[in-house]
Amino acid sequence: MTDYNFAYLDEATKRMLRRAILKAVAIPGYQVPFSSREMPMPYGWGTGGVQVTAACLVPEDTLKVIDQGADDTTNAVSIRKFFARVAGVETTEATARASVIQTRHRIPETPLTEGQILVFQVPIPEPLRFLEPRETETRTMHALEDYGLMHVRLYEDIAKHGEIARAYAYPVRVEGRYIMDPSPIPKFDNPKLDNSPALQLFGAGRECRIYALPPYTRVESLDFEDYPFTASKAAGQVCAICGAEDSYLDEVITDDAGGRMFVCSDTDYCATRVAAQAEDAA
């Protein structure tokens, strides 16, 4: 341990955060304002997620941190080390073993279970932000369920591109009420939000907002009746390492001659499959 309080933040701050989280859980999809603290990392690196994680952690927790699905990228490694140091909690790369998972831009492929908490890092919590610049007006629109504008954007996509072109941060409707930005996860992950047994918390540090999806919440991706939502990914590709057909793939450029490969973005899922295949072969 260090001289820091458990999980870096002081108890009064964690209490403030927990109050915001409880309110967010009570009103699924509603953005609860909170007084975001300065964290020892720049905005955009997950200050919101880190604060939510700090407020949720107890000494018995096992923490997993992923960035774009990977456990070994800079953002994931630094946040994992941060909490290992200031909270002394056990860390893991295995989705199934973790009790708290902080994530940036992905939901793990391995299905989550009851009792797990998934914490999203959110850059822009307001789904209406680029449609309506005034914060006072977007809040009124949420309050009055005045959401026609969101579909105007989808309409424009179809008129222009022949399909809904939005591939990430695809807007969803929570329990038939609030429209929510699911953070920049690929739309491939949107179905995993729906009716998830895990508690899903969203923290936006710079924008000072927390919102939540309690377990088993109905989450629908917005669409048109004749242009239904599709959870798309790289078409016709399988993972070059583990051969998975059902996981979200990253395209990796391998040389200067146009060489490329598609691999699972979820490194834990890929490694687990490779290990299982090795065991089967042995």
Partner: peptide
């Protein structure tokens, strides 16, 4: 910054029209 069709469709979508065609 929205096309003519989107402008006319705006009110329809605001009152719940969800069929693009």
């Amino acid at each position: 910054n929205v096309s003519a069709g989107g402008n006319v469709g705006d009110r329809l979508m605001a009152v719940g029209a969800r069929h693009y065609g």
